[in-house]
């Protein structure tokens, strides 16, 4: 792998995870805030709210994970390594 490809891959891997974390971060914050509000309003529904919250948080996290998969491909299985 020449040094230009290596440098570009490392920068791109960092950006893939970093930029990919912004959206899900905002989304998880909104979801968690909504869940806290729901629990404060109706404490007896805590168990149900927690289950739903965890499931939806994991869905949002998957978006960052897609970025991570791209980053891992760039680092460990780069198709342009030649």
């Amino acid at each position: 792998m020449d040094s230009l490809t290596a440098a570009a891959s490392v920068v791109a891997a960092g950006l893939a995870v970093g930029l990919g974390a912004i959206g899900p971060g905002i989304g998880q914050g909104t979801a968690a805030g909504g869940a806290v509000e729901g629990i404060a309003r109706q404490p007896e529904a805590e168990g149900k709210i927690r289950g739903t919250l965890l499931l939806s948080l994991a869905f949002m996290e998957a978006l960052t994970i897609y970025g991570l998969v791209v980053a891992l491909v760039l680092l460990f299985a780069n198709p342009f390594a030649g």
Partner: peptide, 20 residues
Amino acid sequence: MVPMPFAMPLLPLAELEVGQ
């Protein structure tokens, strides 16, 4: 996966054998 040639000297770790 193809092992990355330049990652191994950076992180000489048995635990990080992605692609091996």
